[in-house]
């Protein structure tokens, strides 16, 4: 994992140095792209989804800060790769869903090591982090209880209605 990240960094460092910033992917276009991707991963259901809770904006800041060893250059590169065959923003909703599903399949089912797959693993992770650490994601979609005041070691789960605890730090840290 460490090696993977390091080699990724090297690749993208060189990309950053050579590729000019695409005007179409700066500012609003980037936000629009991210919003679409966010909602394809975590849509609004009974609780608001990733776009609604502002995950895109959070990702822009996180990427700029270097979380998960990402960079703004990597994010731009990923957005470009989304548009490899046809401009992502100009595609229909169904096409956008197909494009992302194909990428997700390649990354997680085929375990491809191509650049799109490697970048997607990072940005999918960031979307999940952004969503499940937001107030809605952590405390409405999941269960959040800062001061439980109890430890009950064995609770029966009834018909799948028991939500996972977002603040089970052991589970979050160990993954």
């Amino acid at each position: 994992m460490m090696t993977l990240t390091t080699s990724c960094q090297k690749i993208w460092q060189s990309v950053e140095e050579t590729s000019p910033t695409s005007a179409t992917l700066g500012g609003d276009s980037m936000l629009e792209t991210l919003d679409i991707v966010c909602d394809l991963v975590i849509p609004s259901t009974e609780t608001p989804g990733a776009k609604a809770v502002g995950v895109s904006q959070w990702i822009l800041g996180a990427v700029d800060n270097g979380l998960l060893a990402t960079s703004t250059g990597e994010l731009q590169r990923f957005a470009e790769l989304l548009s490899t065959d046809f401009p992502f923003l100009q595609s229909t909703a169904a096409e956008q869903s197909q494009i992302l599903a194909a990428i997700d399949n390649r990354a997680y089912i085929e375990h491809s090591q191509d650049e799109t797959s490697l970048l997607w693993q990072k940005f999918k992770t960031l979307i999940l982090m952004g969503y499940y650490t937001s107030e809605v994601g952590a405390s409405q979609e999941l269960h959040y209880e800062l001061v439980p005041g109890r430890f009950i070691p064995d609770v029966e789960i009834k018909d799948g209605i028991t939500k996972a605890w977002s603040n089970d730090w052991t589970a979050v840290d160990f993954g």
């Binding site: 394809l40 991963v41 869903s97 599903a101 997700d104 999940l128 999941l142 996972a164 589970a171 979050v172």
Partner: peptide
């Protein structure tokens, strides 16, 4: 312990 949302990082899947 039981895994929580964090396992999504290694899972295929999108949407509802």
């Amino acid at each position: 312990y039981r895994l929580t949302w964090n396992r999504g990082r290694r899972m295929a899947g999108l949407g509802t």
